[in-house]
C-alpha cells in the first residue's frame, strides 16, 4: 500500500486565541472522494482555509503531510504549484483583473514550478475552451474581470472551471454547493465528477447532504467541535440528513 496523499494528524488550530480545531485527524488516498459534514461552527471552513494556506490561523499542534511533505510549511502559491486547490466558499471579486489573464498566469506559474513549458496565448485558449464545457460556461466569461458582478452560481461554476484548468491533485471544495439552485448544483457536481481521476483526490466540505446525491464519497466524516467524531460510508450522509447532527454530536458538546 502506498503512502496516503494527505495525512492530517491531531491538528489543533485557532484564531485570535479562540480554538477551532481540536485534534483533527484524517487520511486520504489518491483516487478517493471524502466528504466532511458538520453543523455551523464545527470548523469545516477553518480546515479548508488552513489547508490552502491562509495565514490568519494559528496552528498550535499537529501536522499536515501532503505527498510526504509538510504542507503547513509551504506558502499558499507553493501548495497550489504542488496540486492543492481550494474552491472558495465565497470566491473573491477582483475587478480590473481579466479572467483569462489571471488564469493563464496561474496555470503558467504552476507549469513553471513543475518544470513544464509555459503555454502561449493560443495553446491556453484551446485548453480553456475545452475546459469551459465542463461547467457549461459561456465564452464571454473569459473577457470579464475575475468574479466581478458574477451571480453566486456563476462564481461557484467559475471555481470549478479554474479547477478544471489547473487540474489539482488535491481539490478542497468548501461548501461549493451552498446557495446553488438544483440546476447549478447539478452542473457543478457533474463538473467535479468529470475531473475525478485515479491520481487525484477530492475533499468535499458541505453543510447539506443534497450534494452527495451527485458526488458519491468513499468516506463521510462528521466534524464537530473541531474534530472528526464519526466516519462512515455514503450511507452516513443519508442518516445525517434524516436524523440531523444531534444524535452524534450530543455526547461531544463538552469538548469545547
Amino acid at each position: 500500500m502506498s503512502k496516503p496523499l494527505l495525512e492530517i494528524k491531531n491538528l489543533h488550530a485557532g484564531v485570535e486565541g479562540r480554538k477551532i480545531l481540536n485534534g483533527l485527524s484524517l487520511e486520504m488516498n489518491a483516487g478517493e472522494v471524502h466528504a466532511i459534514m458538520g453543523p455551523n461552527g464545527s470548523g469545516k471552513s477553518t480546515l479548508a482555509s488552513i489547508l490552502a494556506g491562509r495565514e490568519d490561523y494559528e496552528i498550535t499542534d499537529g501536522q499536515v503531510i501532503y505527498q510526504g511533505e509538510d504542507l503547513l510549511e509551504m506558502a499558499p502559491e507553493e501548495r497550489a504549484h504542488k496540486g492543492v486547490f481550494l474552491a472558495f466558499q465565497y470566491p473573491i471579486e477582483i475587478p480590473g483583473v481579466n479572467s483569462t489573464y489571471f488564469l493563464k498566469a496561474a496555470l503558467n506559474e504552476k507549469r513553471k514550478a513543475n518544470g513544464q513549458p509555459e503555454l502561449d496565448a493560443m495553446e491556453f485558449l484551446t485548453l480553456v475552451k475545452e475546459k469551459m464545457k465542463v461547467v457549461e460556461l459561456p465564452e464571454d466569461f473569459l473577457k470579464r474581470p475575475v468574479n466581478a458582478g458574477f451571480s453566486g452560481g456563476e462564481k461557484k461554476r467559475n471555481e470549478i472551471f479554474q479547477m478544471a484548468v489547473l487540474e489539482p491533485t488535491l481539490a478542497i471544495l468548501d461548501e461549493t454547493d451552498s446557495g446553488l439552485d438544483i440546476d447549478a448544483l447539478r452542473i457543478v457536481a457533474e463538473g467535479v465528477n468529470r475531473l475525478k481521476t485515479a491520481n487525484n483526490a477530492q475533499l468535499v466540505i458541505t453543510h447539506y447532504q443534497r450534494l452527495l446525491n451527485y458526488i458519491v464519497p468513499d468516506q463521510v466524516h462528521v466534524l464537530s467541535n473541531g474534530r472528526i467524531i464519526k466516519t462512515g460510508g455514503k450511507e452516513l450522509a443519508l442518516e445525517l440528513e434524516e436524523k440531523g447532527y444531534d444524535w452524534i454530536t450530543k455526547g461531544d458538546a463538552v469538548a469545547a
Binding site: E55, E77, I94, A105
Partner: peptide, 12 residues
Amino acid sequence: AIFYLRARGLPL
C-alpha cells in the same frame, strides 16, 4: 484578494 490569487498559484 491577494490570498485568492496566491491560492491559485500566483506568487505574492
